[in-house]
């Protein structure tokens, strides 16, 4: 028996919109810890890891660990039928091949049940160890989204370089090149507007902008994005989901041959 009630149902809608273009189908795992997902894109270049902790739900019942294979496009279609203020409850049962999404209006005067078919998905689960990063950049998520969008109109790849001067985003394309530098800037009044750079050593890596732009669909989930860089590892682009968990995107770099 599975019953997860989320007062702020819009969070789940936003999560789906953030990942459904990167990953078409995935297993959602429910355990005592929370509702989670790990899935790679079809080319195994990018990975999304989502965690919504059980404490963040208004009601969380998960009798046994359960994995639900879901087509994310279909789930997104169903969640789009929930109103922006609706409470969403996810219901499932062992041994059935469906999951039910229940939408309740704030005033409790409209209750909708949407039942969706589950599917068997053979997904490869990767072990992602905790790691030390050479540089960690925290910046306003909207600013990062703007940079990726702007650079995406010029080139296909972005070189992200962190030095003690700041974080530099560089691209080159047929029409020319672009270079954007963000310096550390701490705002005491509005910490979410700050750009904070923790650098152990300088690092410079190249990534496909197509993926970065896909990750920025999570911008509505958090005002701040954290970008962790190491020359030995895929970059991690993390959006914290207030009081609930996170959505993390991992992206393998492009390497000079």
């Amino acid at each position: 028996m599975l019953e997860l009630r989320l007062i702020q149902g819009s969070l789940l809608k936003k999560v789906l919109e953030a990942i459904k273009d990167l990953v078409t189908e995935a297993n959602f795992d429910c355990s005592a810890t929370g509702f989670s997902l790990q899935a790679m894109d079809s080319s195994h270049v990018a990975l999304v890891a989502l965690l919504l902790r059980s404490e963040g739900f208004d009601h969380y019942r998960c009798d046994r660990n359960l994995s639900m294979g879901i087509n994310l496009n279909n789930m997104s279609k169903m969640l789009r039928c929930a109103g922006p203020e609706d409470i969403i409850t996810i219901k499932g049962d062992d041994g059935t091949d469906t999951v039910t999404f229940m939408f309740e209006s704030q005033k409790q005067d409209k209750i909708s049940d949407f039942e969706m078919k589950l599917m068997d998905i053979d997904s490869e689960h990767l072990g992602i160890p905790d790691a030390e990063y050479q540089a960690i950049v925290r910046m306003p998520s909207a600013e990062f989204a703007r940079i990726c969008k702007d650079l995406g109109s010029i080139g296909d790849t972005v070189v992200i370089s962190v030095t003690k001067e700041g974080v530099k985003f560089f691209t080159r394309g047929d029409v020319g090149s672009a270079n954007i530098v963000c310096r550390q800037n701490t705002s005491v009044d509005k910490p979410e507007d700050s750009t904070v750079i923790e650098m152990n050593e300088p690092v410079s890596l190249t990534f496909a902008l197509r993926y970065m732009n896909s990750f920025t669909k999570a911008t509505t989930l958090s005002e701040v994005v954290t970008i962790s860089l190491s020359s030995e590892l895929p970059v991690v682009v993390e959006y914290k989901i207030a009081e609930m968990g996170y959505i993390r995107f991992y992206l393998a770099p492009k390497i000079e041959d």
């Binding site: 080319s43 270049v45 990018a46 990767l126 590892l233 895929p234 393998a252 492009k254 390497i255 000079e256």
Partner: peptide
């Protein structure tokens, strides 16, 4: 020229 690495170059299955 640049070559795209994949995640399996960095992380193991399991």
């Amino acid at each position: 020229d640049t070559r795209q690495k994949t995640l399996t170059n960095y992380f193991c299955s399991g």
